[in-house]
Simulated scan of single mutants.
Amino acid sequence: MSEAEFVEDGDVTWITVGGHAQSAVSLTDPSLLVFEYVQQLALCIDAVFARPTPVRVTHVGGAGLTLARWVHHTRPGSPQIVLEPDVPLTEAVRRELPLPRGHRIRVRPQSGEEGVAGLASASADLVILDAYAGGQVPASLTTVEWLGEVARVLAPGGLLLANLGDRPGLRYAARVASGARAALGPGAQTAYVGLHHVLKAKGFGNVVLAASREALPIDAMRRAAARQPLPTGVVAPGEVLSRAAGAYPFSAARDDTAQSPAPPD
């Protein structure tokens, strides 16, 4: 695995691995979220889970632990499990960017597949998939089989969030959303949050997939999106379905898997 580089830029420390910017962390202000997709993950969390009530979180992918620090800051006492197989990265982050006192963040040196399989049923209120290798989401973390394990781990009323990079048209995201609905069962809803140009198929970018067995708070998500620094929108469950005509889940059983599309050069 590539060695992490830490570059200070004012109050923010950037973490770069293998030429890719993985995280941006502010130790003095954990509420400062630099990447747009991290802001979008946070707005989804705020729309579903009221502050400052603790929430049980499983993070699949850790890097600089930016979102775990934010959850601790906004919801003190939240028990959090971070599945991060890159042990040297975790050690470097702990050394360069120590976690705050009183945190309940536990980093496990496990892959998403191994780590989620070992979790108890209904043990998480929130599962966040933000795992990339070489700039792409590993194929094994978007199959309907793995999403079924996530569904097992989610408690009633639980929320799955996934950070997905995709091309214009969001066909990859549509297949992941289809898998999430199949895994969560009848009545499950999926929505997208992203920058307007990404949602309108005008460029490659990140989209946050939100999925739940319960009705998603779309109005609250849209109000929060309207307050974002850059133009951000929400695609409601009905439109996700209409856009996804013909999209079917990725499946390891069918040997039908794919990494997320690679970012353009």
Rank of each mutant, 00 (worst) to 15 (best):
L170A: 05
R243C: 00
L126K: 11
A139I: 00
V144R: 14
V207M: 06
G238C: 04
D86Q: 09
A224D: 01
P249N: 05
R227S: 08
D86A: 11
A124S: 15
F204Q: 08
A236H: 06
A183E: 01
V34T: 07
A220W: 10
V7P: 04
D29E: 15
A50T: 13
V34M: 12
G205T: 05
A139D: 10
R223P: 00
L33G: 08
A224K: 07
S26Q: 13
V87D: 04
G61A: 05
A155I: 01
A162M: 13
D46C: 09
G112T: 07
G135R: 09
A180P: 10
T13C: 08
R108S: 09
G158W: 01
V137G: 04
R101S: 11
L209P: 06
Y172M: 08
V60F: 06
A21Q: 15
R223G: 00
L154E: 04
G233I: 04
L97C: 07
G112V: 08
Q110G: 03
R171K: 14
L126E: 10
R171L: 12
G77Y: 06
P231S: 06
V207P: 07
S251L: 04
F35Q: 11
L195E: 15
P264I: 03
R95P: 07
A226S: 14
P237C: 00
P261F: 14
D9M: 12
A224Y: 02
L199K: 12
L241I: 06
L147V: 04
R167S: 07
A133T: 07
Q22S: 08
L129I: 04
A21N: 13
A191R: 14
A42H: 13
A63C: 05
L199D: 05
L230A: 12
E5P: 02
L230V: 10
G205M: 06
D255L: 13
A63Q: 03
P168H: 10
P217G: 00
E5W: 01
S251Q: 02
R171M: 09
A252M: 02
E113R: 14
F35P: 09
D255G: 15
V71K: 07
L170H: 11
E36T: 09
A124P: 15
F49Y: 10
Q110E: 15
Y37E: 03
V234A: 03
V137Q: 08
I105D: 04
L230Y: 14
Y248Q: 02
L141W: 10
A258F: 08
T58S: 08
F204I: 01
H197N: 13
G246D: 06
G102E: 10
W146V: 03
E114C: 02
A182Q: 15
L195G: 14
D11V: 07
F204G: 02
A174P: 11
